[in-house]
Design a protein around this nucleic acid. Sequence first.
DNA 1: TTGTACGCGTTATCAA
DNA 2: TTGATAACGCGTACAA
Lengths: 334, 334
Amino acid sequence: MAGIRDVAKLAGVSTATVTRALRDEASVTAATKAKVRAAALRLDYVPSAAARALSRGRSNLLGLFVPDITNPFYAQVAQGLEDRAAEARYHCVIASSHLNPERERHLLTSFQDGTLAGLAATTVGTDEGFTTALGATRGPLVLVDRRPRGIKAPLVRTDNRKVTRGAISQLFEMGHTRIAMISGPRDFDTACQRLSGFRLAYKAAGTALPDELIRHGHLGEAGGYKAMNELLELDPRPTAVFCFNNLVTVGALKAIREARLRIPTDISILAFDDMNLFPLVDPPISAIDQPAYEMGRAAADLLLRQLDGERGLGDVVLPATMIMRESLAPPSTR
Amino acid sequence: MAGIRDVAKLAGVSTATVTRALRDEASVTAATKAKVRAAALRLDYVPSAAARALSRGRSNLLGLFVPDITNPFYAQVAQGLEDRAAEARYHCVIASSHLNPERERHLLTSFQDGTLAGLAATTVGTDEGFTTALGATRGPLVLVDRRPRGIKAPLVRTDNRKVTRGAISQLFEMGHTRIAMISGPRDFDTACQRLSGFRLAYKAAGTALPDELIRHGHLGEAGGYKAMNELLELDPRPTAVFCFNNLVTVGALKAIREARLRIPTDISILAFDDMNLFPLVDPPISAIDQPAYEMGRAAADLLLRQLDGERGLGDVVLPATMIMRESLAPPSTR
DNA sequence: TTGTACGCGTTATCAA
DNA sequence: TTGATAACGCGTACAA
């Protein structure tokens, strides 16, 4: 493995000049650059990432913490982050915690060693030890989707409350009066916001909202499945259900199928987060679509700008949109 | 930021002892270790990743190259890789090329700088410049899913040919005689193997296979959509279609829906790679399921073993399984 | 068991 | 415009 000294020797210049030439700095003669480049090419020279990181005090790696890279929403965020990062010659380290707060904190502390120049995170942990660790991050931090209590950093999100309120209002307009929600953990601000929008729609419709129609704390397919089964026990059954996120929806759909109920005849379904197969499900599932890819790009952008020295960056709020499909219909009049 | 010198000073030992104590080496007194740990804790000291990588000549980062992290198959591979890597205190850098060979090669060369200790790759590029770049990788290399021509490295795969042959034979047993295949690029060995299994089943059934029933070179949703539309033009129409992978299947399904045909009444569908929503599609889609997560783990394992000095590792072949759902039925007799 | 001192390969500073 | 050289912070022979 050729080093910078070898190149310098072969090109007949100093190591400092090699660095400058290869970075195409203006202070180097075209002739010198040519010599250096030729030498580097001949020796297959590539500057060492470790040495550069050590010397500059910063790596060219951006971290992305997600609860589950297997969830298409986060995969799209990852792709967006990566694309934007690549434009600035940064690469991405992705850490997926399987919704496991323990694992998440462990991962977080293992990155306090300067491996990452910056971190974009969607976290599930909420205990204090965790937020401390998150706050102790070296380098800039950006939050994606939700902000854990007490963490101060720019957040990329959608307007959960507003879009939810609008969507649920549409259900009321269709004639539904008993709309349930499978919500996430109470300490997720996204869950709070979506729930808040949900309540606002109820209020606007002048309808009382019985507690039993809100199921808190559900996450993932398993959570959606369980919560939907509980809802189906209710008497009278809700005529429509709003699911906190995509995987929760999948679980809920499986429960409905097992109960041999028909959508939307027996029950209407609205998902938060779209999936590429939702149009093909029986029946096609209506969803509130978040611009996941763009959220990832925005997060990377925020990180890069901080790395460039910008301060005081604010939150980025992107629009979510309602996609109407056949899983929503007026309640059957029995 | 506290450095090793600060810790050494505070603990009243040398920097060498700090290193040894924090790595819990046997040659250090318990008392000394305690002192050092206390000092490190008090100063919030964390050894620098860059310095360690430089000094040891190797980072603790494993790379994963995939065509598209948004594809759940690769996301699961990534999760498996990451989980196994974490057990050995390695982290993962994920690079997704959007099926763009240009981008892929660019990414590859940008990692020749020792950022990665090892690389696991599923690639789409096939030109020579690319394979050269892949071969020039620093550190161990492992291939996932498919092997590009001329690359010598352990491969983690499933037995594409055998499982495909078995699955297609089942279709013949159901009574199908006109089974089409939407295949991938001819220079993907996975495409070749699945195609080979497909042909074997035809042979075993004693049925001639007209060229028109095989559509080469399709990838992604767009590819599946296009190919399916071509197949639907055929007269007579195939009574069953085997799709090269999950996303191709999604595209194909959308084409069928647009054509207002019914599955399996008008046409049967078999996918390669399962998806979590396939059971909920109208109708539930039969699929050949690859153990993506396990493939990722196996790849990481192969990488780690090479990093430990093991040589001459062979390919890993994992079992794929047929999942029968309602998209497969005997052809309607008209 | 612990300390000293050098090397790892760049980048940045300062002088020429 | 270019060169000499001092960091950067850790790992590790080698010495004690």
